[in-house]
Design a protein around this nucleic acid. Structure first.
Length: 561
RNA sequence: GCGCCCGUAGCUCAGCUGGAUAGAGCAACGGAUUUCUAAUCCGUAGGCCGUAGGUUCGAAUCCUACCGGGCGUGCCA
């Protein structure tokens, strides 16, 4: 099913085809822009296509628009009530009432599938996000990434893509060794030794819990007691990572975010993947040796300097391992690799793009989006957060404080690429008037209407064709609602195309607003039975759309509040 | 030094591949409920779009310089 904009685009295109010979232009590569004007008098949809053509051919936009309008008026009578031409060359479309009602029927009949795109058999997307180090519980930054990543995955899936959500566990390297050491010292402390936790260790108190857990695990504890410090640190490290990953999974689940796969860096390192990536890059001539180290020529891809892949002692760098991981993503058959990274990894984009291109993958098969940082404010003071210092606000605390629905809505309702000031005090205090409740209330209100209708024996018949839809769209509130409802597929489409899950929250707010207004102005349950049924039908469509949209972003659609 | 993000209403932010009179929410102020949930609705007020130039029919949007805030700039992960 094509979206409304897609259909208007097609109509406009066929109109342009008919006048193309007169002006001698080609439609190849011309993107016909269809937008929703800010002001009602400029129509429901509008196109500035005449300007685009006029500019490239140096002709008068008004003339092109005038001829286009003439052809368009001949082409379609059903879609539009009228088409306007406004100087200096805007073409404005006004939808017909007939079309609005026809499209409303689509919502009713397609239900949860309204706005879905056909399955795309070509693309297999792997979407990697969060991937926090397994050195502690997830914090608010991960919460933002989780909200965004999960919603994006759902949206892309809805728009027909095959999406595989993956979490990369950095369970190898120096950081986790330090983690093992930290827990070892916590264990020493717990057994009564007066030792101080070294400064380079993770200071978080959650590690005391892990230490306790290990000491209670008698069989494991016995095993490590007789080992030397290095060996026991390794054992403790693995135990700790396992325990922390488990708790991260739990936190994410509470946040309603689930992954298709948790991928272990440790396992990757033990496989042949690293040798493979080095071999492949060598074959392509992208590597060179210098002072006993192996370098990758990332300067060929706009990086500031070439990057070390293998150190003098023969161990691979993080970059090297990550390259192997990304090669593995393609090896597993994914055609589109999408990563959400934190701003601290920003500098890695050129070299990672470079590595993948060197190995023969196209530039646009790998995309990175930076989910910007979250600044937490408490009493107007910025909270300094450092994992090592152990003072960071946790995802689970956020959940307890303001709830999953409000938190997710908040994280999504702004572009992922900009910094986010999260005022904890305000979020807590405002929990009553948070926009998410406004949206949820709309859904609950609708459910309440149906409950009431049932007691009045006003029930929508199974055969919806019996309903007199002609009674709808008689007033502005209904017309505005229907117009916004049928815009849903376009909103989702744009959100998927531009990777902007925030468009959904904005859409939800508008629908809720239009509904609340309608609710205030008009009654659904009236003495006129036909009208009652028609309005129930409309309200049911609103409920369908609200539910789909809320599901996509992982927010509950409550039956009552 | 270099790179990136940000600067729009009192606050939080949309709008940024140039287009029609710069928008929304919150806060402030004034109003609305005998009827399906007032967690609602209606109205008022609020702006040198960081500053200065440039590009053009047209700039919040593009270019240049500068100012301010934040982050990054490892053979750590």
């Amino acid at each position: 099913m094509k979206t409304v904009i897609e259909r208007i685009k097609e109509i406009t295109k066929s109109g342009l085809k008919k006048i193309s010979s007169k002006y001698n232009f080609s439609l190849d590569g011309l993107d016909i822009e269809i937008e929703i004007p800010k002001e009602e008098k400029y129509g429901d949809y509008s196109t500035p296509v005449a300007f685009n053509l006029a500019r490239s051919m140096n002709i008068n936009p008004f003339h092109v628009a005038r001829d286009l309008l003439e052809t368009l008026n001949k082409i379609n009578r059903f879609f539009f009530k009228k088409i306007d031409l406004v100087p200096p060359g805007f073409i404005n479309f006004f939808l017909s009432r007939k079309f609005l009602l026809k499209e409303l029927q689509e919502i009713s009949s397609q239900k949860g599938n309204y706005g879905k795109a056909d399955k795309d058999r070509e693309d297999k997307i792997i979407l990697e996000f969060v991937s926090a180090n397994p050195t502690g519980p997830l914090n608010v930054v991960s919460a933002r990434a989780a909200s965004v990543g999960d919603a994006l995955g759902n949206i892309l899936q809805f728009r027909g893509k095959n999406v595989f959500k993956e979490y990369y566990i950095n369970d190898a390297g120096g950081q986790v060794d330090l983690l093992g050491k930290s827990v070892l010292y916590r264990m020493k402390q717990r057994s009564g030794k007066r030792v101080k936790l070294p400064e380079d260790c993770y200071q978080g108190e959650y590690l005391i819990d892990v230490a306790t857990e290990i000491m209670k695990d008698k069989s494991f504890y016995k095993k490590i007691k007789n080992l030397n410090e290095k060996e026991s640190i390794e054992m403790i490290r693995d135990y700790t990572v396992k325990s922390i990953v488990k708790s991260q999974k739990k936190d994410l689940k509470a946040f309603q975010v689930e992954f298709d796969n948790w991928y272990s860096e440790n396992r990757l390192r033990k496989s042949k993947a690293i040798d493979e990536v080095l071999d492949l890059l060598k074959k392509k001539g992208a590597l060179y040796d210098n002072e006993g180290k192996v370098y990758f020529r990332s300067t060929s891809f706009g990086d500031e300097k070439d990057r070390v892949m293998v150190r003098e002692d023969g161990t691979p760098t993080y970059f090297c391992v990550d390259s192997a991981y990304h090669l593995d993503k393609f090896r597993r058959g994914f055609t589109q690799v999408i990563d959400l990274w934190g701003p601290d990894h920003h500098g890695y984009i050129p070299r990672m793009k470079g590595v993948l291109q060197s190995m023969g993958f196209t530039e646009d098969s790998f995309q990175v989006f930076i989910v910007q940082q979250v600044n937490l404010l408490e009493k107007n003071e910025k909270i300094q957060m450092s994992k090592r210092a152990g003072n960071f606000v946790l995802m689970r605390d956020l959940l307890k404080d303001i709830g999953k629905d409000a938190a997710r809505f908040f994280f999504l309702h702004r572009t992922l690429n900009s910094h986010l000031d999260f005022d904890m005090e305000l979020a807590r205090k405002q929990s009553d008037e948070n926009p998410v409740f406004y949206v949820q209330y709309a859904h609950a209100r609708i459910c309440s209407i149906f409950k009431q209708a049932e007691s009045q024996k006003a029930k929508l018949p199974k055969d919806r064709s019996k309903i007199k839809l002609d009674l709808l769209a008689e007033n502005k509130e209904e017309i505005d609602l229907i117009k916004k409802l049928i815009d849903f597929p376009d909103t989702i489409r744009e959100a998927a195309l531009k990777f902007q899950p925030g468009l959904i929250t904005g859409y939800l707010l508008t629908i809720a607003q239009l509904f609340h207004k309608f609710y205030t102005e008009h009654r659904v349950l009236t003495k006129n039975k036909s009208l009652t049924l028609a309005r129930l039908y409309l309200v049911e469509c609103i409920k369908i759309i609200l539910k789909i949209a809320l599901d996509l972003i992982g927010i509950k659609a409550p039956e009552k509040m």
